[in-house]
Amino acid sequence: MNTTTDAPVATPATLAAAGTTSAAPAIRIEGLGKRFGAAGPVVLEDINLTIEPGEFVCLLGASGCGKSTLLNIIAGLEHPTTGTVTVTSGSAAVMFQESALFPWLTAGRNVELALKLRGVPRARRRTQALELLDLVNLADAAHKRPHELSGGMRQRVALARSLAQDRKVLLMDEPFAALDAITRDLLHEELERIWRETGRTIVFVTHNVREAARLGQRVLLMTSRPGRIVNEWRIDDTGPRRIESPEVSRLAIEITDQLREEIRRNAV
């Protein structure tokens, strides 16, 4: 991994890596490759990645770089062609761009269904669902159906539902891409708070550079055709940041420059 950055907010990967504990990583990916069909295009090539427990990693790349495919492989929804993926805690919770709430169930029941499929006894589901909804500040909306909620509220219910799975690893596939900027900004704050409170390992896929620079402890840049991780930035965690802050902007500019460079290479 060629870590070339020396931006003020980003420290070289080697330094930060030296500081990590020797505990088993949350996710370990080795030599992963993926192609669709025997003669299909190579989507992912030689992905090697170790994610520590409790880390917030942003996977950044242009559309079609295979970042969602990588996430689906980690989630177990797709299988790699070569290489191995190990999720130490067994399986992961996933949240998608569309909330994909079940439209025939209320917000509360949507969360309860996740608890039910996890094997939580019926008697405890209701209170637990309410607690989870309260975590995303939606306890009052438990009786509402998805179509009565705004897009941001639906995503928060989806977040509560994925927290109901109680997995150590949470995979998020562009969860805020369809939201307006104001709502997205709030959800960044919400997600960061929940991450700090619950200590979950989060892998967050996005094509939004600022979003990645705002949220991630580590930002991985992927290139397209074939999808590879070309660079990574580690960001010192000095508490909550704001998307408008100069540090985030500076990092976003640096990442964008390299992203554009990578895209230019595809020009004929």
Binding site: A75, L77, S91, A93, V94, F96, E98, A100, F102, W104, L113, A114, L117, R118, R161, Q165
Partner: peptide
């Protein structure tokens, strides 16, 4: 997407049919 969510939430084949697909 609803089927995928069902799978991700850990539904078995029969749970997927009765709790997700049929409704």
């Amino acid at each position: 997407q609803l089927r995928r969510v069902g799978t991700v939430l850990g539904a078995s084949r029969s749970q997927l049919a009765t709790l997700v697909i049929l409704p």
